[in-house]
Design a protein around this nucleic acid. Structure first.
Length: 635
RNA sequence: GCCCAUAUGGCUCAGAGGUAGAGCACUUCCUUGGUAAGGAAGAGGUCACGGGUUCAAUUCCCGUUAUGGGCUCCA
């Protein structure tokens, strides 16, 4: 095709002008063709005589795919300039940008990115056509024979033809699609640098990976950067520190959170609400020990299927081999199974629902620990439901209903995902098939849309996962429902059916929050630390203006504590302004200021975070307002 | 676990081969203030831990621990 470079050169002109001309001219010149699911650049489309939907230079998904792919090449070109010995592996477009994996003699750091970015800009400003040509496989192997990384790439390609894209003196093996000219790349940013295993395989050579992002225009790039900054501001590790929710300590160990008073207040509120919701649905509280004999984990299968994630300890005589080995629980199911076996169960008892805010330990590789989102010790809002086959449907529907109500309360929407048999599954295929079918039918009947994750199930059964979407559109996996036909078998669980015969119950593992740690991290980021009244660690801060008002402050506090409200009084010898500021910084939903007028008339002056206004109420009105706030919640 | 980076008073961070500094927080005093920082004084650190180089290391090198960015996206 013949390229018209006028419209691209104008990208360096004043934004308003470029925008207008882009709108007029670029619209005329497509950068690619979409044929079915495939995105082709113009060169390829012409070569194969494929026609389809035209892709123009804008921020559409298809256009960005092309832009970012070319930007990855621009990155490689700049790297080649700066580090002539660099060898390149793959540089794909990913969900949120692109990356390029490469090998280079020296180790690069974040500080090197600006330099590389600058070189990219220079190359883009200079501009060169991006041209494609095709080689036979043999020619390609010959061309890259000195380059083991490219040979590795070629070895994974099935086609007999290899395409090469050339811009200036830089060439790269690539299937495209690409822009017609490097001048079109001016709105990009290199974002991260890291190591990445060759081919993503642990143990393989570690290459250097640089991540970046690119857009069609400056505004979109700016918006992207703003969004990243917003997410950063909400980082639960930062907010958790700012408002003293939790901390980690080197002397205690990585991934082992310490819950400060504020964080513990928040946790208890979640626990209390959930406890009530469980009891209302007929769940019974139970509790198992933290460590169980290894023999129990052998029966359950954890000893063989989950050992890398478990911690073990030796008790009593260390010489006594197996009998003295105990495993710290990574799950609560075994304890609950033993509790089930405490009595001979009748079909009349089922479904039997046991729940526990169970503390579990799981070994995570040191490099993956991340604030509260990835820890080694956490508390699950765990439950195990023992039921008959006939009851499975209703039980699952009830759990879906509970999770729906919980997520709605916090303002999350969610999607469901069915995960099927993994490679390390235990139990017979027939059992798996049956369980998977049951879930599939329920999901279809429920009318909720759901996706399928093949091979993503737990080793003992298929599961439904809940993926929630937070206030700034990020997705998190939380709740889960897992059908388990294996553990009842392994522990020989029974109930007496209506014909006085022994029958095998089905076990359903489920969690709504998943873990308190993870869920609280998500809540912190979702609310940016500004928790709704019903879970805020400190719900009200009372500020008496001067000493004579302290007595009244105490009275108010006592009244509020009776309503189960967490209240702090800020009566330190500091200016009123400063105390208000400190209270605001704590992100407390409500600040009550009291002075002469309030004491005299038994009223309160409220500074309301949510309404962002101040108002004055009588004590009764205030009490009603609080009660109203609290009655809005409950699952 | 692997790659790269970081580690200085409670917190956020300066700093230099010759044994350390600011702001906030903390303590005491003054100030009794009507809605986001009133004022003054004081206390607090073997510069993460363990080795090594050096006349001398917190500063350079190695290891450990912890933290941060990644390690799924396939020319």
């Amino acid at each position: 095709m013949t390229s018209k470079w006028s419209e691209v050169q104008i990208l360096s002109r004043p934004p308003c002008l470029s925008k207008i001309i882009i709108e007029i001219e670029v619209l005329v010149d497509p950068i690619g063709i979409k044929s079915g699911e495939e995105i082709l650049d113009i060169a390829t489309a012409e070569e194969l005589s494929i026609e389809g939907e035209k892709i123009y230079f804008d921020n559409s998904e298809e256009s960005l795919t092309i832009i970012r792919h070319s930007c990855a090449h621009l990155l490689a070109q700049a790297l080649k300039d700066l580090y002539p010995d660099a060898k390149f592996f793959v540089g794909p477009v990913i969900e949120d940008g692109f990356y390029y994996d490469f090998r280079v003699g020296e180790s690069l750091t974040l500080d090197d990115l600006p330099k590389i970015e600058k070189r990219m800009k220079e190359l883009s400003n200079k501009g060169s056509k991006i041209e494609k040509y095709v080689l036979s496989r043999d020619e390609g192997v010959e061309k890259f024979r000195e380059d083991d990384l490219k040979i590795a790439v070629i070895s994974k390609i099935e086609s007999d033809e290899l395409s090469i894209y050339k811009q200036g003196d830089f060439e790269d093996l690539c299937r495209g699609p690409h822009l017609p000219h490097t001048k079109m790349l001016s709105n990009f940013k290199l974002t991260k640098i890291s190591g990445a295993y060759l081919g993503g395989k642990e143990g393989a050579e570690m290459l250097t990976r640089i991540y970046g992002v690119a857009f069609a225009d400056k505004d979109a790039l700016k918006e992207y950067i703003t969004r990243i900054e917003e997410a950063k501001k909400r980082d639960h590790r930062k907010i958790g520190h700012d408002i003293s929710l939790f901390k980690f300590d080197e002397d205690i160990g990585g991934g082992l959170p310490l819950w400060l008073p504020n964080g513990s207040r928040l946790r208890s509120k979640l626990e209390n609400i959930l406890y009530k919701a469980m009891r209302k649905r007929g769940y019974e509280p139970v509790r198992g020990p933290e460590i169980l004999k290894s023999q129990a984990w052998k029966i359950s299968g954890h000893y063989y299927n989950y050992k890398e994630n478990m911690y073990f300890t030796q008790i009593d005589d260390e010489d006594k081999e197996q009998s003295s080995e105990y495993g710290i629980k990574p799950m609560n199911c075994v304890g609950h199974i033993k509790i089930y076996q405490d009595a001979l169960r009748s079909y009349r008892d089922l479904p039997l629902k046991f729940f526990e805010f169970g503390v579990v330990h799981r070994h995570e590789k040191s490099g993956v620990l991340h604030g509260l989102l990835r820890v080694r010790e956490f508390t699950q809002d765990d439950a195990h439901i023992f039921c008959t086959k006939e009851q499975v449907k209703d039980v699952i529907l009830e759990v879906i209903d509970l999770i729906t109500k919980i997520m709605a309360t916090f303002g999350f929407s969610f999607e469901m995902e069915l995960s099927t048999k993994p490679d390390n599954a235990i139990g017979e295929d027939a059992i798996w098939e049956e369980a998977t079918k049951i879930i599939e039918k329920i999901l279809k009947d429920s009318g909720h849309p759901f996706a399928v994750d093949e091979g993503g199930g737990a080793f003992y059964g298929p599961k439904i996962d809940f993926k929630i979407t937070d206030a700034i559109g990020r997705k998190w996996q939380c709740g889960t429902i897992q059908i388990d036909l294996n553990l009842p078998e392994r522990f020989d669980l029974e109930y007496v059916d209506e014909n006085n015969n022994r029958a095998r119950p089905i076990m359903i593992h489920r969690a709504a929050f998943g873990s308190f740690e993870r869920f609280i991290a998500i809540l912190i980021e979702h609310y940016a630390g500004e928790f709704p009244f019903f879970i805020a660690p400190t719900q009200i801060i009372i500020i008496p203006i001067a000493a004579p008002h302290q007595e009244y402050a105490k009275e108010l506090k006592s009244m509020l504590m009776d309503l189960d409200i967490d209240v702090d009084i800020l009566d330190r010898n500091e200016s009123l302004n400063k105390r208000v500021r400190n209270a605001e910084k704590q992100k407390v939903p409500m600040i009550v200021v009291i002075g002469d007028a309030e004491v005299a008339e038994k009223r309160v002056a409220i500074r309301d975070r949510r309404k962002k206004e101040q108002y004055n109420l009588s004590i009764d009105e205030f009490k009603n307002l609080i009660k109203e706030n609290m009655s809005e919640v409950g699952f």
